[in-house]
């Protein structure tokens, strides 16, 4: 983990520097009349300071962490997480085109299939029922204006 911490501290430092630069560009004003960039600039400096502390801390904790053999990244089901993320991304992008009912039905069916093995008819049934029920709950009862898509529903 300490290796990741070291790399992450560089990312935080870059973020802090970026924040300071952008704040300076916005205008700092003066201490008696602080402008839009004043507090973000001060906080940016704080982020840089903390990233340096974390960088140093990663060396100090190295020995302790070395003894800890099991990594938090071991046995992670990466493929499933990436697949689910892509499904959600696709849903957000396709919702206006496909409309709520179709997009939600497809999302649910693929999400159900992405977990432990489940038969297609069960997935299709749950997808159909849930998309219909949530449409009624949010679209009809709570009046959320869902996009209708090319099929007009």
């Amino acid at each position: 983990m300490e290796r990741y911490d070291r790399w992450l501290s560089f990312i935080w430092m870059a973020l802090g520097l970026g924040q300071c630069f952008e704040s300076w560009r916005l205008g700092l004003g003066s201490v008696s009349e602080p402008e839009s960039g004043f507090m973000p600039f001060v906080l940016g400096l704080g982020i840089i300071a903390l990233s340096v502390i974390l960088w140093v801390e990663s060396f100090i904790s190295r020995k302790r962490m070395h003894a800890q053999k099991t990594s938090a990244w071991a046995d992670v089901h990466w493929r499933r997480i990436i697949w689910v993320s892509l499904l959600l991304l696709g849903y957000a992008l396709l919702l206006p085109k496909l409309g709520y009912l179709l997009a939600t039905f497809l999302l649910l069916v693929f999400l159900l299939k992405s977990g432990e093995p489940m038969k297609w008819p069960v997935c299709l049934l749950i997808g159909l029922l849930t998309s219909g029920l949530t449409y009624w709950l949010f679209g009809v009862w709570l009046s959320v204006p869902f996009p209708r898509g090319f099929l007009s529903f």
Partner: peptide, 8 residues
Amino acid sequence: PMILLFCM
């Protein structure tokens, strides 16, 4: 899937 759908 229900939790994710509710989030969306």
